[in-house]
């Protein structure tokens, strides 16, 4: 579904991504782990062109996303993204947050949009917040709304950029619960996270990144119980202490 080949990204002198090659299959849940500054988030953001690759190719459903003929707005409709800082629209209530893009971008009718939104709100357990404003919600609630908002475009893949890192510990569970549900429904997901327990349980594949490179990848069992690379062992040792 997504094929990344020889992807490089530089910020000025800083070489953030070095020759990344990876393929993500439909229905796969891929979790990317690694120390901060290893390029995980930049990699994720290259997938929907929030960062423009310096060189290399990202092919999404057969289309090279950096090609001139490609309409990136069309493509992004099929790639939902969830951010660390939620990025809900503060001047709109929850239902408008969710329905804005389906109505304005996809041309969905207001009734249909709201019907979908209410279904999604039910799925994330927040039907009663439909008319609240983001300011009135807790962090965990905001993130669940952000997930619902991304899902409202019925994307083919969901990208999660450290979705629980900005949350108070007691709110992490509710967000992971929603993500677990999504995974069990067969959604293709690429997740950058520090939640190792979640990675172990939900991931089909774990990718370990360090210093802009993919050092190791495999099933959670392989990566967590039998890491090959010394940097992976080092990182997991520090985290799982």
């Amino acid at each position: 579904m997504i094929k990344v080949s020889n992807l490089n990204k530089k910020f000025g002198q800083l070489h953030v991504l070095k020759n990344i090659n990876v393929e993500i299959e439909k229905g796969e849940v891929v979790v990317i782990i690694g120390p901060s500054g290893s390029g995980k988030s930049t990699f994720l953001r290259c997938l929907n062109l929030l960062e423009y690759p310096t060189s290399g190719e990202v092919i999404f459903e057969g289309i090279p996303i950096t090609s001139k003929e490609n309409n990136i707005d069309k493509l992004r409709q099929k790639m939902g993204m969830v951010f660390q800082q939620f990025n809900l629209f503060p001047h709109m209530n929850v239902i408008d947050n969710i329905t804005l893009a389906p109505i304005k971008v996809k041309g969905m009718s207001k009734e249909e949009g709201e019907k979908t939104a209410l279904q999604l709100l039910k799925m994330v357990g927040l039907q009663d917040k439909a008319y609240s404003y983001p300011k009135q919600l807790s962090g965990g609630q905001k993130q669940r709304i952000a997930i619902a908002r991304a899902l409202a475009m019925s994307p083919d893949v969901m990208l999660f950029d450290e979705p629980t890192s900005a949350l108070d510990p007691e709110m992490v569970g509710e967000v992971l619960y929603v993500m677990r549900q999504l995974a069990s429904k067969g959604m293709t997901m690429v997740i950058v996270t520090h939640e190792m327990g979640f990675a172990k349980e939900v991931a089909d594949r774990v990718i370990f990144m360090d210093d802009g490179k993919i050092l190791e990848q495999g099933t959670p069992k392989n990566i967590f119980l039998n890491p090959q690379h010394v940097r992976t062992k080092d990182f997991l040792g520090k985290i799982l202490m």
Partner: peptide
């Protein structure tokens, strides 16, 4: 306005001008 707002709007598939107008 927080840059994340533009990124969120764009990542939902809104063109730049639409993101400006509504967000």
């Amino acid at each position: 306005v927080d840059y994340g707002q533009m990124e969120a709007a764009r990542s939902l598939g809104m063109p730049y001008s639409m993101a400006m107008k509504y967000i």
